[in-house]
Simulated assay, not measured.
Amino acid sequence: MNKEPAHPPLSGEELGLLAKASMVIQERRDAGLEGLVGGLDSVILATETGNLVPAVFELLRYTGLAIHEAFFDADSQSYVLGLAGSASVIVRSRAGEGNPFSQVNRARLSGSLPNTRIETFVFTTPNLGKYVEIQKGRCVRFLTDSPLESASCSFIQTVPSPFTGNSLGFIEWKTGKKSYVPHGGTVISPDLIKPASAHLGNIAGLDHAATRVRAQDRSSAILEFLNLTNYHYDFGVYVKSLNSITSVARREGENFAMVFTSGITPFPGNGELGPTEKFIRNYGTRVHHMAFRTERIEATVDSLKKDGMEFLLDIVGSEQEGLKQIFSGPSPHTLIVNEYIQRYGDFDGFFTRSNVEKLTEATGRQ
C-alpha cells in the first residue's frame, strides 16, 4: 500500500540521461566536490518595487512562513521569511539598474513585470572558498569575482543559467545566528503582521520547486544542476498526451527536491502545443511553482478559498495512492503558483503519474 507504481520500461533518451548523470556525479567526485554542497538554505524571489509588500503579505497570508528579518542594502529592500524545518524565502526588490536576470524575464506575458521571478536557489557549503576555486577551474561563471562577505556569512551565486534562467547561490555561515543582512545593510522593523488564521499552522516548509524548461534543454538543465550541487537525478514522468516530462532531482537525506518540467518535443509552431511549452512561450523559462508540505489538506484548502485564494483545479490524488496535491492560481505580484501537497504513510515515490498529468493539464489554464 502507498507504493509508487512501477515505472514503464525506460526509453533510450532516459537511459542516456541516467548514464550522463552518473558520469557527472563521478566527475564531481574526481574534482573534490562531494560533500561541499549541502541542502537548500533559501530561495531569492524578486518582485517589482511596488509589488514587494503585497508579495510578502501574500506569502504571510497563504503559507506558514513568517517574517524573520527585513533590511535595506545598496540597491534593494528585502524581507526574509522563514519557518522551522524549511528553507527561507527572501523576497526582494531592486532600486537600481543592471538586473542580470532582465534578459531571461522577457516573454509575451511577463514583460509588464521585468524584474519579477524566483531568481536564485541558495545551498549551504562548509567551505565556500574551496567550492569556488574548484568550480572556477571547471569554467563555472559567477556574478562576482569573489564571495560577498558579511558578519554572518560568505555568499556567491552563478550567472543565470542559459537553460533555466535560474541562478544557484552558495552560502557559508560563519556564526550560529543566521542573518542575511549584507555588509553595509540597514536592518529595518518589519511593517507587516502575519494573519492569525488557524489553518496556516497546517502548511509547513518547502517540499519542492518546479522550473519550466524547453524540451531541447531538459537534459542540459538537469546535468547543469547536478554539476553545481550534490543532488542526483531520480526519474522522469512522461505524459505523452500533453507533450510533457516532469523530472525530479533529489539529494539523500534532503527534504527539498528540484523539479524540471519540459516538453517531450520542442514547440512545433503550429499552435498544437502542450501546456508546458505554452507556459514557456508566454512566460519564458522560469520557476512555475513552490510546493509546501501540508496537513489536513482538504480543510486547509477550504479555508484558503474562504480567504480569497483561487485554484487551478480541485485536489488530485488520494490517501490510498500516497499523496494529494493542488495548484493555486498564479500570484499577480510574483507570477508564482503555490502547490499544497500532503504525503501519506509509507509512500516511497515522489509523484504519481495520474497526479502529474492532472497538474500539468491545469497549467494550461493560466
Rank of each mutant, 00 (worst) to 15 (best):
L143S: 05
A210Q: 02
S189F: 07
L143D: 07
L113W: 14
N255C: 06
A151L: 15
L273E: 10
F170Y: 13
A204T: 11
N2I: 11
I118F: 01
F170H: 02
D30A: 13
F347H: 05
T363K: 03
R108K: 14
L17E: 03
E34M: 10
N127G: 04
E27C: 12
T49F: 10
E361S: 04
L45G: 00
Q325R: 03
F170P: 00
E149T: 08
Y231L: 05
P330D: 01
L128C: 03
V24N: 07
E58F: 05
I315Y: 01
L242D: 00
A46G: 01
D217L: 01
Q320R: 07
K305Y: 02
E319I: 09
N2Q: 07
F279V: 04
L59C: 12
I297E: 00
Y283K: 10
C139D: 04
T265Q: 11
R61S: 15
L81P: 14
V104R: 13
I222P: 01
T49M: 14
D207M: 12
Y283C: 07
E272N: 11
E119F: 09
G38H: 03
I222C: 02
A362V: 10
I134A: 03
V122H: 02
E310Y: 10
E58C: 14
H183N: 12
K20E: 06
A291Q: 00
L313I: 10
V43E: 03
F260H: 11
V239A: 06
D75T: 11
R61V: 12
S78C: 06
R117H: 07
V80F: 13
P330V: 09
S220W: 06
A210T: 09
T175Q: 13
T63Y: 08
T285C: 10
H183Q: 08
V187Y: 11
K305I: 07
A21L: 15
F170M: 05
L10M: 15
E34L: 10
N115T: 04
G98H: 14
L143V: 02
A299D: 14
I315Q: 07
S318M: 05
T334N: 04
Y180P: 01
T276N: 09
A209T: 12
L83D: 02
G269N: 10
N255P: 12
